[in-house]
Design a protein around this nucleic acid. Sequence first.
DNA 1: AATCTACCCGTACACTGTACGAATTGCTAG
DNA 2: CTAGCAATTCGTACAGTGTACGGGTAGATT
Lengths: 233, 233
Amino acid sequence: MARSKPPRPRAHLSKDGVLHTAVALASRDGIESLTMRKLSDELGAGAMSLYHYVPNKEELIDGMVDIVFGEIELPSRNIDWKSALRWRAISTRHVLNRHRWAVGLMESRVTPGPASLRLHDAVLGCLREAGFSIEMTIQAYSVQDAYIYGFALQEKTTPFDDAEESAAVAEEQTRQFAELAEERQFASLAEEFPYLAEVVAGHVAKVGYDFATSFEYGLDLILDALEKRRDAS
Amino acid sequence: MARSKPPRPRAHLSKDGVLHTAVALASRDGIESLTMRKLSDELGAGAMSLYHYVPNKEELIDGMVDIVFGEIELPSRNIDWKSALRWRAISTRHVLNRHRWAVGLMESRVTPGPASLRLHDAVLGCLREAGFSIEMTIQAYSVQDAYIYGFALQEKTTPFDDAEESAAVAEEQTRQFAELAEERQFASLAEEFPYLAEVVAGHVAKVGYDFATSFEYGLDLILDALEKRRDAS
DNA sequence: AATCTACCCGTACACTGTACGAATTGCTAG
DNA sequence: CTAGCAATTCGTACAGTGTACGGGTAGATT
């Protein structure tokens, strides 16, 4: 009785709607499973309808990335520069954790969208107003963003979310390596990679590793160092 | 006269050969155009022959990534830790520049290969022997790698290689934005994003931007800050 | 009511990774 | 030297991808 072609009730689309459901889908199922057909299904439309709002998949992703940029909080103008930049960095990490698929794509797109431009401008402005020279502003910007996005990259595919889970994972991986070593005629982890063993099996497995704490440690290290360099010039 | 099926002279393959030509192909044409069929063509073999050496494309890429890890120079044991780590960082940047396709993939693979383990162990060892506590070693490792891979990410898709070219690109992009602003009823770059304009049009277009210099500036900033924190404990 | 324009989408095509199983090669044991 | 076998190569087929093309249909404008 199932008609093979129930005439669709006509979908009503918009560029914003397309982009936002695309983001939602990518964040839920991962970007590698985001398909023009799946996206259009989710919207109750035909696959080719999407092409009225987006010229191709590449530019669809550009749009998605700019939505993610838009979720990052701009550095506040009412507090000191270090706190402001600290907070926007933490905000960036949060957003990137919500949208892991975006991690390798944010900084490496060719054509930046408006939200991206707005954020970049705000960060540069924050540094300039804090008394950094143009040259130092560029450097400061570069270090911070490299760190932020690089850190997100490390976090992207880790199978744990907090310190406790990290300990469990470390233990599990250590065990797996031991198996693998036995299976072949390998040396043990401790013999072949003593320092790695010390850190993974000896420390993380016992104490755990917390990404949030680690991120802020490195962030403060960088911001403090930037301040010193500014004052020295 | 062209036979549609010249019986192939039988390819002689090996896992190493497959992996290395895959790396060469990806580095030349970009990873998005690396196809099982293209790879097998390059090797003078049929597409399905590859699957005798590699279970699937995902693990092929794992292998390729580990080859890239293998090209990174280990930190030397014969010099002070800061110089050693400085050099391995610079070496990493060079390698990643040779293999841009690998940039988002190095740190985010699930199963690390032997070269990756070796490098990680060596870096951790360098820090431990330099007197860092286990906790600080982990932090130091995290900051450095986040910075290195994040920086590589920024470099990944930039269309210039040195300071001169960067100036030309900055000028061109400024011009393009002006066009776009005129086309719609937009405000100009300088009005909408004043700080961005100052940096891009005002500075980079005139002086240029050199990635290598910038990278080392941030790298030294981080290494110096790490040393201070070590000495303070 | 007629026209037009913006929007929607079915079909088709080239290209992807890879499951399956058949063909061939080179080695090893008799 | 031969029989048999295991390792290796690969042709065919299939489901799934992005998207070019062109025909349709709804809603606004005259």
